[in-house]
Design a protein around this nucleic acid. Sequence first.
DNA 1: TAACGGAGATGGGACGTCCTTTGTCCTATT
DNA 2: AATAGGACAAAGGACGTCCCATCTCCGTTA
Lengths: 243, 243
Amino acid sequence: MTVASQGVSSARYSAQIRSHALQTRIMDLILEQGLDVGDSLPTESELSAVLGVGRNTVRESLKVLQALGVIEIRHGFGTFVAPNNFSALTEGLVFRGRLSLRHQGEEAMELVDVRQALESGLIGRAIDLVTAEQLGDLRAVMEAMDKAAAAGEPFAELDAEFHRRLYAPLNNELLMNLMDVFWKVYRQIHQALGAGPVNLGEQARIHWEIYEAVADKDKTLAAERLQRHFDGIRQKLKDVAAR
Amino acid sequence: MTVASQGVSSARYSAQIRSHALQTRIMDLILEQGLDVGDSLPTESELSAVLGVGRNTVRESLKVLQALGVIEIRHGFGTFVAPNNFSALTEGLVFRGRLSLRHQGEEAMELVDVRQALESGLIGRAIDLVTAEQLGDLRAVMEAMDKAAAAGEPFAELDAEFHRRLYAPLNNELLMNLMDVFWKVYRQIHQALGAGPVNLGEQARIHWEIYEAVADKDKTLAAERLQRHFDGIRQKLKDVAAR
DNA sequence: TAACGGAGATGGGACGTCCTTTGTCCTATT
DNA sequence: AATAGGACAAAGGACGTCCCATCTCCGTTA
């Protein structure tokens, strides 16, 4: 544990506790009133009155809750309970990643480790649950990837889509969000590092191999190929960071 | 899909883009100036001047960045680049979890799935890397757990500590943070659900079995026992949610 | 019937003011 | 000389107020 990691939660920062309390009160208010995703919160002025604090203070808390993906603020219309949304988490992680590039990109590597564990750990169950239709979707992505590769176009988005669809059978929204976050963060760190030239054809081939293993319902093989896929990514990161 | 669920990411919300841009500018400013963890940012007034926006606006962005774990604000002292810290993420997830209790606690289940994949997926490498000292630490936790179980005291904290130490050998701070978050969220959801009576002795036994497998460096067995541990948790959740 | 536009509501933002907290430094006391 | 305590300055915290920007809704008009 680092020196400072005891920081934020420490009782020392009473101000943080107070503003944190306000956020909690707002969340509790949502829950108490039985609001659900899509329902609207009271206006800022109303909240300011109900909670007994100034409107600016309310606004600060609302902004934080929005950043945490709890609510959605729409200018001129109102504030609403947000659907699941982790995009905020992305920002923080990307920042962390960029900050860590000064220290040999540890964070990026850690991120790949976590992704690897998640994906190769879950592929088995995904194979158990995948339907023919979902497999078809996956294949469609691969064909698009081939097309992009043949045209010499990068296919970062298709890559992400492939991994996303791979785990769609699990029907786990939290996982989807997390994987999205990891993917975006990885992407941005990769770009910031200055990605070297990529071999599109080989990229596509690796994904095809994973697809084949999944289509054959061969869990061990799929897990192994995913593992290797990530080993490759890790190696590439190491190469870039070494410069 | 609800009315609002197409919301946040849409280009439609220019206001969100603007405030998001401000956050990004602050983060960029940190990176450009070469600030590292612990360094202090300009004061709110200075930022307000440099960025050409009002102090309240700056404050809103700073609060968000604090919530994202990017910076740490200390009343009367200044604003600093924060060490890694995910505690903020916890809040959002706990809220999600509580919100979802109305829908048979799906989120809690998803959370367990992700934890399971992460932990059983990473235990192998943890076993590869674990040192004798770390193994000793792990054992110490187990002995404390035994003592608590014998005394009839719940040992949620020791349980968390066990899982934390299990993966300490990986030296992956991101993973540690994530696991901490998952743990806290799970804990809170569990409490909110109204935890049933727990069999302390059996809890301890299960953890001992995992420990033994790790001590024997038996990766397969450890992964399997972890898997079963989580299956048990999942079953318990299902029971509680069924009421 | 469809397109346009205004009204009203709601969030966005900027100042200015005063309070609270924190760290520092200086002084007085022992 | 060492220490305790108070004064001071700097920084963030909270509010109130005023005006702007944007959205939705609904009525008007072509």
